[in-house]
Amino acid sequence: MSTHEDVLSSENLPHEPERATLEGKNKFMGFWFFLGGETVLFASLFGTYLALKNSFGDAEGTPSQELFGLPLVFIMTVILLTSSLTSVYGIYHMKNQAFKKMMVWFTITVLLGASFLGLEVYEFNHYVHEFHHTFTAHAFGSAFYALVGFHGAHVAFGLLWFLTLMFRNAKRGLNLYNAPKFYLVSLYWHFIDVVWVFIFTVVYLMGKVG
């Protein structure tokens, strides 16, 4: 075995394996830079939504007070918050080099994320069929689906990212090459949760209050 291989898959990983190599450090730094950019991207969608949430033009539209149902949003929020905690458990086990336990917690995270996505699909479907609240109906609809839908797309991408990493590394175990990858996907997952906290507050709760 070459020394390079030896270092990457050593029996005892160093403390903080996600930042132990130069590649890991660069990924860590670059990913936070990306998250800063994502913050601005979501801000532009939030700003658009806030400006257009009462704009219906000539179209007949349902105002947000009548449209949104809080129980479903509450369930979705709890599911996503819980999935954030389960991915923290995954990283906890990664730091203790317990690969199997990490995989179990990430599997739970993926299941919770998928049920969140399923509920969101149901919600959108409900709006379209019961209220004719569509993407092209009016400015409120466009801004709503652009913001919430873009977040949903992030959830879908996060799920694919988790699944890809888990399948690809299932037989490899934990090493210095994939530890940064698992760390980053969990950061991404937390960021999705951060955005959702603002979505449920600004879109649903403030929409309900009026």
Binding site: W32, F33, L35, G36, G37, E38, T39, V40, F42, A43, S44, F46, G47, T48, L50, A51, L52, S55
Partner: peptide, 23 residues
């Protein structure tokens, strides 16, 4: 530094969009 620069730009973006662009 990166995330809070993002937050700074985000606040400016939201202020601009809600007060100038569409209102």
């Amino acid at each position: 530094l990166m995330i809070f620069s993002g937050v700074f730009a985000a606040v400016l973006t939201i202020l601009a969009l809600t007060t100038i662009t569409w209102i």
